[in-house]
Design a protein around this nucleic acid. Sequence first.
DNA 1: CTTTTGTGTCATACA
DNA 2: TATGTATGACACAAA
Length: 694
Amino acid sequence: MKYLKPWWSDGGSLLHLTILLSLAGLRLDLDLDLDLYLLLPPRTLLGDELLLSGGPTSPAYALSPFPASGGWGRAELLHPKGRERDPVAPPEGQLLREVRALGVPFIPCTRVDAWLVHSVAAGDADGAHALLGAAAASSAGGVGAGVNGVSQAAPGSGGNPRAAPSSPLAAGDEEKAPAEPTSQVSDAGGHASEENEVLRAVDHRSQHEENEQRASTQREKSLQQKNEDENKVADKPAWEAEKTSEPRNEIHRNGTDTFFSLEDLFQLLSSQPENPLEGISLGDSALPGSINDGMNSPTHANYSQAVSHDVNLHEAMLLCPDNTFRRDPVTRTSQPQELFLQLNSPLTNPEQTLSGTNLTGFLPFDNQMRDLTNQDLLYDLDVNIFDEINLMSLATEEGFDPMEVSQLFEEPDSDSGLSLNSSHNSTSVTKSNSLRSVCEGASRSSSESLSHRDLEGAVGGYYPEPTKLCHMNHRSDSHFHGDFAFQPVLHNHTYHLQPSALESTYESFSWPGKSQKIRRGYLNDTDRNLSRDEQRAKALHIPFSVDEIVQMPVDSFNSMLSRYYLTDFQVSLIRDIRRRGKNKVAAQNCRRRKLDVILNLEDDVCNLQAKKETLKRERSQCHKAINIMKQKLHDLYHDVFSRLRDDEGRPVNPNQYALQCSRDGSVLIVPKELVTPGQKKENQKGKRKSERRN
DNA sequence: CTTTTGTGTCATACA
DNA sequence: TATGTATGACACAAA
């Protein structure tokens, strides 16, 4: 963490927040490297600790150590982890009350996007500092993760629905910073404007150039990290992606979630002119101290320029054909689609992006439905033809193992709807080839728009067959296909399997039943790691992953089934996979509940046993007390009789007389013969009971 | 080798 | 009716 005296340290009267990022090269790890400093005005009295809350669920930051008095003090906002504090933040309202009770203006933090704080004049601590740092690039872009920074919506705040930092940037309106505090800011603190705070983000050394130099060395690491991120993105089901489009514009990062968004910072900055105390405005001469010089210096950009620079830099980095984007298409089959996302996420609205990235069937394409092309011709063809072609292509696909499939589906009842007896002869091959020709004649203009993610998520990384794509395409946009989508078409399909072999292969298909077993000995190591359903899906080249099949909503599921051309066999398998997947989860939950019940019952048993022991002890203590009371009563009885004298002054024999208490409290000496039988019985009962207990 | 444990799956009932 | 969930029962693999 590098901290230098800020340029406004001799001016201003309100709390300034300095956000300094320790940039390890161009990579940011906010968990470790983001430190927050509060600049406290002179004579600010604080407790030794001040909690700031970024949001209902964000961790609290402790303000420590105590700032120096008599001048601008600096206090570091320490992450709870660093102080081994309880990371659970107190309720926000309580924090705000505590903070306000101290009379110190504060800035409610909801989220801090990573941004590069750049000092144009390197080494000039008093120089102006331009904000060159782009806000977090989109996660799809991946650049931000490695270069500019990251952003994350605080989970508790429900995330920032805006397109993260790219929204103000992509707006291209750098001269007009949003004047209104965002709802997120106002939600978190609710008083950003009324507190009249100024937010400044500076760095005291130019790290930008340094970072640029480090970029090449860090690129590999960034690429690795980015690939990990993209893997996460790629693992996200399409139906999920279609629902949450904007998170693609954000880096999802584990760890600290109390951050400003760059947009929030801009808005705070833009609200500055409304602050009569500060008199600091963006990009004008009201900035105190050397900042004015710096900002007006030709070598320094003002904030607006910084923002503009940011935009351009950001977009340029997104758009430039940097090596960062070059990935091995073999190892990363989803690259084209993700690159598409990268290129479009900051520039297009999510709907457009989605419409371009969910072309494999997860989104409705009403407009595409209207745009029927020559592929409509295909629609009139017998579906069975597609069926046959599909099976043919399945059988001729590389890695297709008929034995494997037959092992995966072995049950006598082969009522799968497969046209097993269909003639897989040269005629069907000719048909398929002709269909491929027709499909190849279709548009190839938007290859990048085909969702590779969907394909990648499919079991076995299978690309849909061209025939399948054709079939889908005839119901979709003609721009649906791309060149790469037809890559299999370019393969030399020699159909090495003879029709008889194919027929026997398909006849060996059987539906998974109760007695199904997988002879894993036939499976390779890779397949052995797959579940049975995954193996089945792979064997039949189901173009969806098992997770997708299981987890997607029923509407998406049904639309998927209807949108894809799938054989009855495949549909049945998909439905079974879904059913089994759901049931598997249900079984897991059921067992978990059962375990919880057992554990709770064990706890109950322990508690009851403990309670029993307690009650036993209490009873024993009660008996002891009773015996003591009896003994005392006995002693008292004899003491009383020892003091009693009859009319003649002789002691009263306790064996002949008894003391009897009347209701009015008087005590009478009564001969024992006159004691009522009921009293005698009660006394004897009590005696017997006590004897039994003893 | 047997037993235990965890897991997947199926059948069934129910919502 | 379709779908999802809950649960008992069974099979199987691994410890």
